[in-house]
Design a protein around this nucleic acid. Structure first.
Length: 304
DNA sequence: AACGGAGCCAACCGCGAGTCA
DNA sequence: TTGACTCGCGGTTGGCTCCGT
């Protein structure tokens, strides 16, 4: 947190304005929040520097925008991330990398800043701590199929080429691991860890393990039954992205289309977790998938 | 009770992209 | 085409809170 201060700065160009010497920085006071909230509710969003001026705030437009988006917006969801949201973030991060705004757009009520902070603190820390766990080298270990051990075996492997070995992952320094977590190799972003047709061995550890953990993460939290984020209906596993707005595509499109739905053959329950004993993967072309990204439905507050 | 370290998270910063005159 | 300006994004900072000693 930053202490409120009455210094200039903020937006580059606004700093040219001598009046900006009075611009406030740092934490927002309740009075400022009230002013901005009232203005936004009455007038809607316009030019942010006008918002700042017209609302009677001694803030730069940029600061007003940030405050509105990250804190005052009425549709914001408060509180801790649910297991489903956590799983979705991990999944989306594996697809999108550090594109927090795009990830946030698929989590109603959550902001990019919130997700970024959550990732950098909670998830990254968890991944790191688990990476030092001796269990993570044995992908066949049952421990690997439950929440916790799953995250680390999932994340780095998603970023690995199938020719890489899990043991080489273990030899990575934490710095290297950090960098890889933050910056997935380009081949992952370009071709996608989910591009089943290019070099990812679907029949062994990589994706089965990943999918297992998606399930494991959810545990009893509404996964089974199809009402959760990761809907599960009969033996058809619905890819999470579909549930957050990707144009639905028929299952039979794998020849010319972009992907085919996952299909689980058998689910085995291990304690509170579900494990996929065997399932098949269809094709899911990442580039095709990403073509849809800009066309995802906007959240309500974005459509104005 | 006091202290210090670690973690969290609100907010800032710099940059690139888009728009318009 | 160019420059001024705004917007939005991702990375980073640093103050507050929590927790262990």
């Amino acid at each position: 947190m930053r202490k409120p201060e009455a210094s200039g700065g903020g937006e580059k160009l606004e700093s040219h304005n001598s009046a900006n010497n009075k611009l406030r920085k740092g934490l927002w006071s309740p009075e400022e929040d009230d002013k901005l909230m009232n203005y936004m509710l009455n007038n809607g969003q316009g030019c942010w520097s006008d918002v700042a001026r017209n609302a009677g705030l001694l803030r730069c437009g940029k600061s007003c925008r940030l405050r509105w988006i990250n804190y005052l917006r009425p549709d914001l969801k408060r509180g801790a991330f649910s297991p489903q949201e956590e799983s979705l973030i991990i999944h989306l991060h594996s697809l999108l990398g550090n594109r927090w705004s795009q990830i946030a757009a698929r989590l109603p009520g959550r902001t990019d800043n919130e997700i970024k902070n959550f990732w950098n603190s909670t998830i990254k820390k968890r991944i790191k701590s688990l990476s030092s766990s001796p269990n993570t080298s044995d992908s066949s270990s049952p421990k690997d199929h439950v929440m916790g051990a799953g995250l680390i075996s999932m994340m780095p492997m998603m970023y690995m080429d199938s020719s890489s070995s899990s043991s080489s992952m273990q030899n990575m320094s934490s710095q290297q691991l950090n960098h890889m977590i933050d910056h997935p190799p380009s081949h992952v972003l370009e071709h996608g860890a989910l591009n089943m047709s290019t070099g990812y061995d679907l029949n062994n550890v990589l994706l089965p393990q990943y999918m297992t953990h998606q399930i494991g993460v959810c545990g009893d939290h509404s996964f089974h039954g199809g009402n959760g984020i990761f809907g599960f209906d009969g033996d058809l596993f619905v890819p999470p992205l579909e549930n957050v707005g990707i144009e639905e595509k028929p299952e039979s499109t794998h020849e010319n289309g972009s992907y085919k739905n996952y299909r689980t053959e058998n689910l085995a329950r291990i304690g509170n977790y579900w494990e996929v004993e065997e399932f098949r993967m269809g094709e899911w072309d990442f580039e095709e998938l990403m073509k849809d990204v800009p066309t995802f439905p906007l959240l309500d507050f974005q459509v104005q």
